[in-house]
Amino acid sequence: METLNFRFEKGDRRLASQANMVGVVSSGNLEVLIESIDLNGGCEVEIKTAAVGFGAIWQAVVADFHARWSLQDVRILINDAGATPAVVSLRLDQAVESVMGATA
């Protein structure tokens, strides 16, 4: 297992609700927990993955995600068992859409 942590600053969108989880590790190999929390405007992403050595790919996927959504005061926890980057992007977008409400 490998744990990766990323933090992004200067987001300008907040979540409409407190928390949600999408996906499960046994279906699509990925689950995402997203929660609203005071991070001084930052967005933190923690990834626990069984696929060791793919930090650069994870960084690219979550940087692209942050560029799309520009979240602030959000923590995202990802449990991965080998999902492809496309599945990761899909699950991240689903997680945000589930908690954005009418503000998306």
Rank of each mutant, 00 (worst) to 15 (best):
V87Y: 09
V61A: 05
A81L: 09
D80W: 00
N29G: 04
A81Q: 10
V25W: 08
M1F: 13
G82A: 04
R75I: 07
V24C: 13
V88D: 08
V88Y: 01
G101Q: 05
F6G: 00
L33N: 14
L33T: 12
I57G: 08
V45T: 08
V24R: 15
A16V: 02
A51L: 15
V25Y: 10
S98M: 10
T3Q: 13
R7H: 09
L92G: 03
A95Y: 05
V32K: 02
L90T: 06
A50M: 10
V22Q: 03
L4R: 07
S26W: 07
S17K: 12
K48H: 09
V25I: 15
G101P: 05
I78S: 04
K10C: 10
V74G: 00
F54T: 13
D80T: 04
V52R: 12
T3K: 14
E46C: 14
L90C: 09
G55Y: 03
V61F: 00
R14M: 11
V32G: 08
V96P: 04
R14L: 15
T3F: 11
R13T: 12
L92E: 00
R75T: 02
T84M: 07
D38L: 11
T103A: 09
K48A: 11
D38R: 08
K48S: 12
Q59G: 14
A95H: 07
V96F: 01
S36L: 03
G82F: 03
V62M: 04
I78M: 11
A51G: 05
L77I: 14
V62N: 00
E9I: 12
E97M: 13
V52S: 06
M100G: 01
P85L: 06
W58G: 05
